[in-house]
């Protein structure tokens, strides 16, 4: 069966090979690879391949996820069944001291924190933290209310994307 995917890869050397390897090693035959550099940080790569059956595809998915490669879209024989989107937001406040692990864990229950960058001017000052979260399109609203709840609780300023 024919599988069309959009993978979101870090913009570093060797990532593409790392992403294609699990496909071929589980019997996938790559038909085409195109990539578009739209945003900073991550690159969207469209990969189409043919695979024997569903169980081989499952193996490929698991292998990709193990490498922390994000599958933002997947269609089998033209029928879409995953669409993920990436959301970015900035938290300003005492983000580290208010248990950043807990913040990330709670967000991971709804989506997946795929990137995080922290700027800490001094230990007693407010830090700024940018998070990228991969999420199923339909869970957008749930994620937003969760993040708003965390911000209220931990007194962060939330700067979310448009």
């Amino acid at each position: 069966m024919k599988v069309d995917t959009v993978l979101r890869l870090k913009d570093v050397p060797g990532m593409l090979i790392k992403a294609l390897e699990p496909i071929s090693s589980h019997g996938g035959n790559v038909i085409s690879v195109t990539h578009s550099r739209e945003e900073k940080g991550l690159v969207s790569v469209h990969v189409s391949f043919k695979v024997q059956d569903q169980s081989s595809l499952n193996l490929i998915r698991r292998a990709l996820e193990k490498q922390r490669i994000i599958i933002s879209e997947m269609a089998i024989e033209g029928r879409t069944y995953i669409t993920k989107k990436s959301l970015s937001f900035i938290l300003v406040g005492h983000v580290i001291d208010t248990d950043i692990r807990d913040t990330i864990d709670r967000i991971n229950e709804v989506g997946m924190v795929s990137g995080i960058e922290v700027v800490m001017p001094a230990p007693n000052q407010k830090s700024s933290v940018l998070m990228d979260v991969e999420i199923d399109e339909k869970s957008n609203g749930i994620l937003l209310s969760l993040v708003e709840k965390i911000c209220k609780e931990k007194e962060f300023l939330l700067v979310r994307s448009l």
Partner: peptide, 30 residues
């Protein structure tokens, strides 16, 4: 710091009025 961080990731911070959401807040704008 927040502005610099936004810039590094391809965003600017703007004070946006969102009429449908009935919300005024700083937002990340590509």
């Amino acid at each position: 710091d927040a502005i610099e961080l936004a810039g590094k990731h391809g965003f600017v911070i703007k004070l946006v009025g969102d009429v449908n959401g009935l919300e005024v807040s700083p937002r990340l704008v590509p």
